[in-house]
Design a protein around this nucleic acid. Structure first.
Lengths: 151, 151
DNA sequence: AGCTGGTCGTTCAAATCTGAACAACAAGTA
DNA sequence: TACTTGTTGTTCAGATTTGAACGACCAGCT
């Protein structure tokens, strides 16, 4: 509170661009997924994480960390995905408190079907507009702040 | 749908890092603002935009575009900020349909008071972790995709 | 003036997220 | 064993967002 470190032009420009772009991209992705499969981006990310996990299953808490969602938000979304038949709940054998979210065959097929359309959006607006070097700079920068935020 | 262009490792790494980090940062910012002033990040951004606008006022639609929010979301938030005395609504003199959101003196003082704490978070987790060059690369990249998304 | 298409901001119901509270269980310690 | 501390996932109420529908208004044209 003593003396405020404001952002200079370069810093402010970076922050504003990052902020606007992430929100705009989020919007577009949401729109595409809703139209293509009636899914939320949050739901899509859950399917992706599960599909990449051993046994296509994950503990609720671990999954929540992965997709950056609160525990209650994940509980809600898993319930929705369960109703849609894309995910199932299993009690964790090694921990009676635990719950395993498991990707069903239907869920896996659904994901394979909508992934191309989703990735097309990610490509068109972000990935294909960056050079190889920019991609690497972006990754390094993001990982540094991600690491700080996970602590 | 013909042949899918998947993302290679470099591309996927960039996308995942960008996605996780933007969500994590959003969370932290939300947490800080809530604790410091009981404000949402969306509300804070509205105050910032208004403070930088001529006459500290903006048309609803223009403001919605600026902060990347839907019209209904903005209507809701402006109502909240009005209840808090930080913003006022005025009928637009040149267009009877229009509504001007005006930042009040109280709103301006509130913003000046909480900006330092907010910027400190932006610095600590993002800005201060990037080199000058990285900041510029990030800005350029984000602006390119922002431009595409605004079209 | 009358029409037409478009824009503006709001409203509404439904969906989603948040954070605190909670009960059940785990793991270590005395 | 009994106790303590921490974790797990859910629940709940409240806050916020979404998208469609709507009435009011603008601008250009006839």
């Amino acid at each position: 509170m003593t003396d405020t470190r404001w952002l200079d032009e370069t810093e402010m420009a970076a922050w504003r661009a990052f902020l606007s772009t992430s929100h705009l991209l989020e919007r577009r992705i949401e729109e595409q997924l809703k139209a293509a499969a009636g899914l939320t981006h949050a739901q899509y990310e859950i399917l992706v994480r599960l599909s990449g996990a051993p046994g296509r299953q994950m503990r609720m808490t671990e999954l929540a960390r992965g997709v950056v969602a609160s525990k209650s938000a994940l509980t809600y979304q898993i319930t929705q995905l369960e109703k849609a038949g894309l995910v199932e709940r299993t009690t964790c054998p090694s921990d009676d408190r635990g719950v395993l979210a498991v990707l069903t065959e239907t869920g896996m097929r659904c994901l394979e079907q909508i992934a191309p359309g989703h990735l097309e959006v990610v490509r068109r607006y972000l990935i294909d507009r960056l050079t190889r070097e920019e991609l690497e700079v972006l990754t390094a920068a993001m990982r540094r702040t991600e690491e700080a935020l996970r602590a």
